[in-house]
Amino acid sequence: MNFRGIQAIFKFEMARMWRTLGQSIASPVLSTSLYFIVFGSAIGSRMKEVDGIEYGSFIVPGLIMLSVLTQSLSNAAFGIYFPKFSGTIYEVLSAPLSYIEVVIGYVGAAATKAMILGTLIFITAHFFVDVEVQHPFWMIAFLALTSITFSLFGFLIGIWANSFEQLQLVPLLIVTPLTFLGGSFYSISMLPPLWQKISMLNPVVYLISGFRWSFYGKSDVSLGVSLLIIGIILVVSMAAVHWVFKTGYKIKS
């Protein structure tokens, strides 16, 4: 293993976060705070409890997931897209690094950033509402798995994208709607039966459900199913990354 090589990529990517502190940290924290103010305090005070949980507290896991998901995706996508676009990727390709090491560097950094962000939002939530964590181990496990899985997915988008528009396309058109419809702000059981069935096709539902369970011990689907779904996305993303590097798809002409 070329640990120094991985470290170099990791450090480079983390430095990008400090450089763009406003964009990568401040803005998601600010927007989540707004959600807490609007949904948690203003509307939440007029809402009934959901699954026996205060509405403001109920939305905390979903909001964390929302940010972690979108940030993993966009961060990892941009992290690899930019060197590809500017040509600086030549250096990484000519270095004595296996593709797995390259992926660990880029995806590891994006996932780390997403987890830092998740933690910050978790802390922010305490200023607005009561938060309880029944299963801290599973909370961290879900956070880590989601960050890694969606960073991998974002990495793939970054390799696939040919333009900045395409880079935004998947997160904007697919992931954001799926996340909003994934039960961040409501329990799936509150939907009419037909929509409950349709929601079950949305992988994000399983992530948020599992994550919420680690907080309050209540979930829409069982823990096992949540883990299975996230595992499947992870394996599919890994297989896709493997294929990309094996064929040199869009990175080696």
Binding site: N2, P83, T88, E91, P96, L97
Partner: peptide, 29 residues
């Protein structure tokens, strides 16, 4: 092997020192 490619491709926001140190790290030194 060391390579100086034909096209000028640099990360615009990096400093000279950091980018050269980065290269050394990439090659495992």
């Amino acid at each position: 092997i060391g390579l100086v490619p034909q096209e000028l491709t640099t990360s615009p926001f990096e400093t000279v020192w950091n980018t050269v140190s980065f290269s050394r790290g990439l090659f495992g030194k």
